[in-house]
Design a binder for these strands. Structure first.
Lengths: 218, 218
DNA sequence: TTAAAAAGTGAGTACTCAATCACTATAAAT
DNA sequence: ATTTATAGTGATTGAGTACTCACTTTTTAA
């Protein structure tokens, strides 16, 4: 049933993605920019080649297919989306005794900056996920799988401290994930904001705290 | 500068959109389904014709261009998106003395059902808005223009009753719009949920109330 | 009943696009 | 210096595309 065909391809790409030529870098750079602006389907390989100052054949020599060029853009982004955050932030959080609210704020700021730094790739990502069922069906579960255990551990800690409402962890995960996910998507992908100030982060934090924090509920 | 070229086209479509042939209806039906599934760019007019049991020429006889077929799908949806709600719900609200929370709940339920009934068109709408700058730049202001005065009136009423936090109305409008908008988009367009239970609506209402309601703020 | 108008057809057209391939230029290894 | 491997080229291909047009069928009006 084509089981994780995509994830296998991704693994291949990761191995090959080390030594890039100057021209390869230029191709990627231009492709990211065009895909983000006009979408994958509306971008011709000829246009990428022209703007990158490269023959069209060069693209296919390196990436084989247009589809594979897209994956070569998205995979390194995905690889960085979770693990980096995990090791830096989650550990720090578990040692220091910061509040749930402060943790959320730090977390959102951290990921916001990452997404701002990679705004174009993020846009490519969202836009393609909307169309390609395969992408959605394989990557969303993968992302959840990556994030779920860590997130569960964090929620558990804060529930025991009495800072998070006493509901099944899976339910809280869902609320958190869809809220944060929806927030990032609508900000950076749909309305293409170039910035995000602390005030807006405070807002979403307040929303979440009031939604799943265990403050007295009138 | 192509000023509201699109809105003119939309006006034309509205006038012509009355008496539809059986084949026209079938074309629209198939086009909506295919555009929603695979996106506008990835759908060939030949495929629409085939699935609709119609010659390809028939499509162009009626709609002229593929682009115009897309508009013919979106315009009636847009026309219904705001006014219907306005006349039914807003008036009712102003006479009865329902609370801000209850108003929000009713409003969200009302619009949720509308979007569920037109889920495919809504998906087409979101997907294309992401790509087409012209669409975004002309329609989003138009939508805001339509909704803004009514929304302003409502917020004003509730502010005077002391149920909504005392901030500039424009700022509150923004928070409300982006929250609700982002909520609908992430639910129905990205993660394509087929349903939405009352519990989830309660959640978003609670988020908003705690965010901009004037409850004591710890 | 007949004329005019509208709806519907489908082969044909001009064009775009991803992908190929025979080839050259450059760098690395022997 | 010579072979081998890798990077890069660009004209060519063939499948697919939106759209046209001369034509037929059906509906409406006189």
């Amino acid at each position: 049933m084509g089981n994780s065909n995509l994830l296998n391809k991704m693994a291949e790409i990761i191995q090959k993605s080390d030594n890039q030529t100057a021209k390869q870098k230029k191709i990627m750079e231009v492709a990211i920019s065009l895909f983000a602006e006009k979408g994958y389907s509306n971008t011709a390989t000829a246009e990428i080649a022209k703007l990158a100052g490269v023959a069209e054949g060069t693209i296919f020599k390196h990436y084989g297919t247009k589809e594979n060029l897209l994956l070569s853009i998205m995979v390194p982004f995905l690889k960085e989306l979770f693990p980096s955050m995990a090791d830096e932030l989650f550990e720090e959080l578990m040692t220091d005794n910061i509040s749930f609210e402060e943790f959320l704020r730090k977390f959102l700021k951290n990921r916001t900056h990452f997404l701002l730094d990679n705004q174009e790739i993020f846009q490519v990502f969202i836009k393609e996920m909307i169309y390609k069922e395969e992408l959605k069906n394989e990557l969303v579960p993968y992302i959840f799988e990556q994030a779920s255990p860590r997130l569960g551990k964090v929620i558990d800690v804060f529930q025991k401290r009495g800072e998070v409402i006493d509901l099944p962890i899976s339910q809280i995960k869902n609320v958190l994930a869809t809220t944060v996910f929806g927030f990032f998507i609508s900000r950076f992908a749909l309305l293409n904001r170039q910035y995000l100030n602390d005030e807006e982060i405070d807002h979403i934090v307040r929303f979440i705290i009031n939604g799943i924090g265990s403050a007295p509920n009138p």
